[in-house]
Design a protein around this nucleic acid. Sequence first.
DNA 1: CTGAAAGCGCTTACAG
DNA 2: CTGAAAGCGCTTACAG
Lengths: 367, 367
Amino acid sequence: MGFIIYALSLSIFIYGAVRMKRRPTQLDVATLAGVSPGIVSTIINNRTNGNIRISEATQQRVLDAIKELGYVPNPVARSLAGGQNRLLGVFTYEALFPLEYRNFYYEFLIGIEKEAEIQDYNLLFFTRRQGTQKRVIYQNGVNSLQLADGAILLGLGTDREELARLNNEGYPFVFIGRREIKNGQISYVAADYKRATREIVEYTINKGHRRLALVQGSLRAEPQLDKQAGYCDATALNGLNESLAEIHYKENDQITVEWLKMLFDKGVTAFIVESTSEAKRLAAVAAQLGKHAPADFSYAILGDPMNLEEIIPDATTYRTPRQEMGAQAVRLLCEILTAGGEIEPRQVILPCHFQPGNTVGAPSHPA
Amino acid sequence: MGFIIYALSLSIFIYGAVRMKRRPTQLDVATLAGVSPGIVSTIINNRTNGNIRISEATQQRVLDAIKELGYVPNPVARSLAGGQNRLLGVFTYEALFPLEYRNFYYEFLIGIEKEAEIQDYNLLFFTRRQGTQKRVIYQNGVNSLQLADGAILLGLGTDREELARLNNEGYPFVFIGRREIKNGQISYVAADYKRATREIVEYTINKGHRRLALVQGSLRAEPQLDKQAGYCDATALNGLNESLAEIHYKENDQITVEWLKMLFDKGVTAFIVESTSEAKRLAAVAAQLGKHAPADFSYAILGDPMNLEEIIPDATTYRTPRQEMGAQAVRLLCEILTAGGEIEPRQVILPCHFQPGNTVGAPSHPA
DNA sequence: CTGAAAGCGCTTACAG
DNA sequence: CTGAAAGCGCTTACAG
């Protein structure tokens, strides 16, 4: 009887058109070793250390059988029985590999990959849309992230409602970047934009500037607000009132010669600029007025460029610790997973790294 | 009774200390909709088109139940049961997001993501090592790619033995780039390096050059061989024998002033260079000899840089159609999946795009 | 057209 | 110390 089962279990099956031997299973091993399947599992998983004890002889027989059959446990079955699938999701509302901004997610992904490898998880990138227009977490009202044990979310175009729902549901996730929702807190790993901005503004003020302008785009999400807060802190602490520390919301095409000339005429000597592309535009327009940084005016950039190609090598700026953020996000997610949900939402704030560069100098007309 | 089962199935369980609803299963859906679990599976998998017919009303009830419960099929269970999980694997032997070569995989990934979205698959990046030293497909003898319905493989450091085994096993996969194995053929999507190289060499010859040198590194895999074949074809067809069409295997640090001077002295006027980094090195060394392209000598580069930062904007080169390769690889994989393994391995060869640039000119001393 | 049941290959209480 | 059994969440013949 044992023989029949054994013979059967090694029968051939069809996988598409290619015929392949069926892989031996735990049952095959158990049968050959003359033990029950559970024992095989116990031995394989080394659970023999606890209170469970299995005789040396039995262990040896099982080990021999495993070797003889070339048995390897099926990872899929293990996942099913174990309740976890060791899949970490990665979700973005926009393309994860955008054409335009090749540097946008890349640094995060480096960190995510490294840490996933350390934590021994595979990564699941949610690209399926299942017919929906754009990417959404809840497809037909269903949380598609369920596919993975937990998920990392990042990027632009976040739907706060979905985040809140995810949170309520208790689905384990970590956002890369600060994101606030109504009625609660989510777990995130963010850069300390506020502090970094405060520092860079103080650096600028210490160079002698007394009349600054913050230039941001029209987007006003958490990062922009944090930067603005840092700017306000630093200027206020140094006795610059609102008329000496202006704030302008300008898209690139609104940065014109007229506008810039007006600011120069007002006596603005230093610009704190949201991003590299705006800085480039600013520098170009200033050049039309015959002004160049740092001799004729100064500017500092708040964070990394979205696109490596547009980097300004000698800019006064700070580096967002993107790789570190990616890695920490994975680590935090794993902690949440390990805690099995026992944990309250947690926020991790990472420092940015100041780059002195060479676009902030002393003002040409000290106040 | 139905009510009791339903109540039970939605019972709260402890997932750590935060009480979260247990993920609903097919049984929950079936119970709520008042059908048997098999029906739910049938509807979800759209197997209603075949001979199986299920009433509109029933379908609607099931769909409603799915929505109400937020049910998502467990991909692991699906795999085990022998179905599909709409996961496409992506496997590389080295880091998928390398620090050094930010442009290496990126373009492929753009194409892969786009096409995966079109084909409605999620992407599974294999980062788990399960204790192995480096990434391998067969972990403890088991094919870890099994987790996905099929996989895209790409990049350096390929283990041919593993590819062959994968092929024998009948596991559905497509390689990005030409890869040959013993005793068989695998499916791949490759760039037509041979043809592109032939064309660029002919372009160079047509400019008047009669004495060329091919400069490749020590790596000699399929791409390098294809390029060399193209070089040999073009030079032979134009009557340049081996002494007029040299081949050198040089790593960057072996490109020295002495060596280059020797070639110049020999009368070599044009260099066909494997990659951008070697071209940069060559140009720098030539500059030390007071020579500049295209006035004093010419060079052409065979393919895209691995790193966007090192791009030479005006180089005579050709573009590898990487995005297209990624997309086509996914498409081919989907075809294989649809055919259910009934298909023979298929190879797709995509043309490269010539970029005239400005580093190949007429020779300064026409032969 | 729909339901009941077996089975995928494991893990893990639960009995003895 | 070891075995028999239930269960993980699906899919897929097989009956009705």
